[in-house]
């Protein structure tokens, strides 16, 4: 079943939409969740919450690429879960490392509450990503969207770990400079 047909089912409020979504994307969504949570039950719950999130947001949303839309839902749900103390105690996977790496891009002198600021930063980041070499952009997203470990990125891309670490570091440094220039810092 195509993504368009599944999205139509959501719009028709046909519960088959969730069955079809599960059949097509369960493994992918589990993968997204597990990388962040490193816990089987939490990951399953995040995926189930994703189906609920999809049901509640379509309509009015009508995504063209269902896979990435659902992936974003799962990622957000999983990140919220991992930020809870109980989950951190279970090991936290790559989240603590990724958090520390990004803390060097933006320090925590002040806290941020404004969702509009997040949206604005997201738009700015798209422009930043567009300027990167494809290879560097892919590695950046594997690390900070999918929360893959450096070793996994190296293995999947066929690079050495050093090459991956250097690419990530240089991209973070470029991002810090760019955000500084635009007064985000």
């Amino acid at each position: 079943m195509t993504d368009e047909m599944i999205v139509d089912l959501y719009w028709q409020r046909d519960e088959q939409a969730i069955t079809m979504t599960r059949d097509k994307y369960e493994k992918y969504l589990y993968a997204v969740a597990y990388r962040i949570l490193q816990h089987e039950q939490d990951s399953e719950e995040s995926v189930n919450d994703t189906y609920i999130g999809a049901w509640n947001t379509m309509p009015p949303k009508k995504p063209h690429i269902l896979r990435t839309y659902l992936g974003k839902l799962t990622r957000n749900i999983s990140l919220k879960r991992v930020r809870k103390n109980e989950t951190l105690k279970r090991g936290g996977g790559e989240y603590p490392l990724v958090f520390n790496e990004l803390s060097q891009v933006m320090s925590d002198d002040t806290s941020v509450e404004d969702l509009a600021e997040q949206k604005s930063l997201a738009e700015y980041l798209d422009g930043f990503l567009a300027e990167l070499e494809q290879r560097d952009r892919v590695m950046f997203l594997m690390r900070y969207w999918y929360l893959c470990s450096v070793k996994e990125i190296a293995s999947k891309c066929g690079y050495t770990q050093s090459k991956v670490k250097m690419s990530l570091k240089r991209t973070r440094d470029k991002l810090r400079l760019a955000l500084e220039k635009e007064d985000w810092l």
Partner: peptide, 12 residues
């Protein structure tokens, strides 16, 4: 702020 970036990357 690190979470801000993490969330913003999520909206790419």
């Amino acid at each position: 702020k690190a979470d801000l970036i993490l969330n913003a990357v999520g909206d790419t």
